[in-house]
Amino acid sequence: MAQSAVRPAQGKQQNFSFSKFINNENTVGYVFIGLFVIGFLVFTVYPLFSSLYYSLTKYDGLSAPEWIGLKNYTRMFTTDIRYQKSLLITFIYVFTSVPLRLIFALIVAMLFKNGGRVVAAYRTLFYLPSVIGGSVAVAVIWRQLWGYGGIINKMFNAIGLIEGDFSFIASESTALATVVVLAVWQFGSPMLTFLAGLKDIPVSYYEAAEVDGANGWQRFWKITLPCLSPVIFFNLINQMISGFMAFTQAYIVTRGGPNDATNLYVVYLFEKSFTSRQMGYGSAMAWVLIVIVGIMTAILFNTQHKWVFYESKGGK
C-alpha cells in the first residue's frame, strides 16, 4: 500500500507540470472514481436526504410532510410489535438463506467449472431458476409444490412424517422455510461470481500442488478456498445486503402471511409506505435498515484481514 503511494514521486522524471498533475495519485484516483462521485451527488444525494427528512415527518405522499421528530423511530421499537417480529424474521431469513445459498452455489460452481458442451448445458439449466426470478410462474409453482396436498406434502405423507393434508406455505411454522428454500434454489448469481473467481485462479498453482502430491481435498482447502476468498467475501457482503432487502420472493409467494410469518423487513416497509401510506415511517424503517446492514458490513470488513487473501497485497 505505502509503496504505491510514493511511487509517482520517484518514478520517471516528469518535465511538464500537467503531466505531473495528471499522474498524481490523487488526480488519477478522482479521474477514475469521478463518475461515481458526480453520479452520487447528482442522482443519489437528493433522494437519500429527502428520505432521511421524510423519516422525521408524517408524510402520506400526497400532502406536505409534517415534522414529528423522532416519533417514527420510537414507534418502531416501542409500540409496533409487528415491526419487531418482522426484524426477527428477517434476521432468521438472512442467517439461514445466505450461508445455504453460498454453499450450494460454490458446490455447483466447483462441479461445473470446466467441461464440454454437456456441462455447459447443465450450468445453464442450473442458472435458469435465477433467470425467471420473480415471475408469476415461480409463485404459482412454489405454491403448488409446497401447498395443501402438493407434491412435497405427498412426499412427507409417503415417509410418514406428516399425516393427511398439510400446507407448508400456509402454516405459520413452515412458511418462512419455503421462502428460504426458494431463495436457495435461486443461487445463480453467487454461482456466477464463483465461476468467474475460479477462472481467475492460475492453473500453475494446481500443477505445483499436484507435483507436491496434494489430493483433491487438500487442493480445495489450500488453493481454491484462499484464492477464492475475495470472491467469497464479495458474495457474503452482497448476499447479506440483498438478504436484508429481500422482497420479491416473500411478496409473490406468501404476501407476508400467514399471520406475518414471512413478513420480511422490506415487505413490511412496503406495506407501511404504500398500502397504509406512511412514507415517513417507511423511510425511518429504511434508515434503521441501513444502520443494521451497515454495522454488519463493517464487522465483516473488519474480519476480512483474518481470512481474505488478496494477491495484490502479496500476503500468504
Partner: peptide, 17 residues
C-alpha cells in the same frame, strides 16, 4: 459511501427520485 448506497431499499426512494 459506495457500499452504503447498496443498502438503501429502492422502495423508499421511489418518490424522491
Amino acid at each position: 459511501i459506495m457500499i452504503v448506497s447498496m443498502m438503501m431499499p429502492a422502495q423508499v426512494l421511489i418518490i424522491p427520485q
